[in-house]
Design a protein around this nucleic acid. Sequence first.
DNA 1: TCTTTTAATCGTAATATTGCAATAAATAAA
DNA 2: TTTATTTATTGCAATATTACGATTAAAAGA
Lengths: 109, 109
Amino acid sequence: MGTAKTEIFSAHQNEIARFAKAFGHPARVAIVQHLFKTNSCICGDLVLEIGLAQATISQHLKELKSLGLIQGTIEGTKVCYCIDAKHWAKMKTIISEFIEQDLNINHCC
Amino acid sequence: MGTAKTEIFSAHQNEIARFAKAFGHPARVAIVQHLFKTNSCICGDLVLEIGLAQATISQHLKELKSLGLIQGTIEGTKVCYCIDAKHWAKMKTIISEFIEQDLNINHCC
DNA sequence: TCTTTTAATCGTAATATTGCAATAAATAAA
DNA sequence: TTTATTTATTGCAATATTACGATTAAAAGA
């Protein structure tokens, strides 16, 4: 237990959940917002911008990176992070389709 | 630790994260999809539809209900769950605005 | 080379989440 | 009233997540 029973759900359902989970923490929301705002960013910026320890930010960045939502390029001793447009668009399609479902006309309750 | 430091983030960032988190588990994704498909539903249906124990489904329903995304009406010994159109629309606006941000033209990496 | 800067990783503690059996609660049906 | 039927709640175990200090790794600069 403690583990989600992913095997009983469809690949699509799991994919929606994985993307949604990525945004399920305010730090990751803030990171993404900051990357959109500046369109390029070094990690140190984020540590100052957001009030979490460097190790914690690095961990959140790793999660976003593992989903392909952001991408990091090494620039000397710094790492330049930015949104990965291609994967972001894919996520956008999948999540939008899910949340923009229309209700049928007839309600029961 | 183990607790997210919500206090250092804006109300808006926390709200995005809370909604996203609700869809961060495939069971809740499946529940929502089923409610949209049938537009009304009893809990027992969900236990059969999804392969989780009754107690587990009840717990997931509670989480969705606490965010106002779904609503339950008691019908005898059964409970009729459905999407709460008003709150769903609010969530849709908030999440859409977040994921549909546009990238600036200039990329650094 | 030695030091500084920057980010990743490791180790660990605290809390949250997931899942389910058992039980309770509430209504319907016999 | 007694017995289903159905869902919520409780209690617990297992795993995941969050956070951070300490350390490591890698490159830049003195």
